[in-house]
Amino acid sequence: MAAIELRNIVKVFSDKRRGRDLLTLDNINLDIEANDFVCLLGPSGCGKSTLLNIIAGFEQATSGRTLVDGKQVERPGSDRGVVFQQPTLMPWLTAIDNIAFHLKLKGVAKAERYDRAMEFIDLVGLRGFEHHHPSEMSGGMNQRVGIARALLMNPSVILMDEPFAALDAQTKLEMQEELVAIWQKRRCTIVFVTHSVDEALVLGNKIVVMTKRPGRIREAVDFDLPRPRDITSPEFNDAKRHVLALIREESTRLAQAS
């Protein structure tokens, strides 16, 4: 049984002001195995974030079934950790309180909360900053808190929606390396949405290329280049060429159609 099963997912947004419907996701079928690092790759507006939100339970598919660990997704829940594009931390809580927020909601005593959160503070390299508020930390540090917060819930899947898009190039590279290290250490299932071919190829062991409007899956590419990945190696470039060709094919098709 796959960790995530998407069966015939269709999502239609009704544009009430213009009185028409917009087909955003058109019959998505996808199986994601446990411990996979899957990158959903596609141009903006292809519905990849919508697909992620459907798995997270933030949005409902118009039709189709979404199963996580064999259970139908109906609402958001702590079995699916989400890392948002913006860190989306509670600004009135310190780093450690943000990371342990899930435990607070469950009524765990403060001493135990902090004890368990410290492990994740260390995991994302924020020791010394545990009592800082989000406004006192950089974007990269806040995003680390966001990742630690999702990991602490020990979810069966982690859903990430372009979490590094707002970071500078240097920090982005660091965070990508750390994320891979965390994934290797903790063996979790990650679904990572991105529009960057390089990012997808650095991170994923499965790249799902999506097409634009309506969103369909163009091809799911297995990509098992050993890590750490050398982005200048011929194998990396072969894969990149293949993925770029898929995307280019798509844009020519769109250009001819219009």
Binding site: S78, F84, H102, R149
Partner: peptide, 13 residues
């Protein structure tokens, strides 16, 4: 912020 509410729901509030 709508996303704070989403984050809360994600953490099981």
């Amino acid at each position: 912020d709508h996303n704070l509410v989403r984050a809360g729901a994600m953490m099981g509030a």
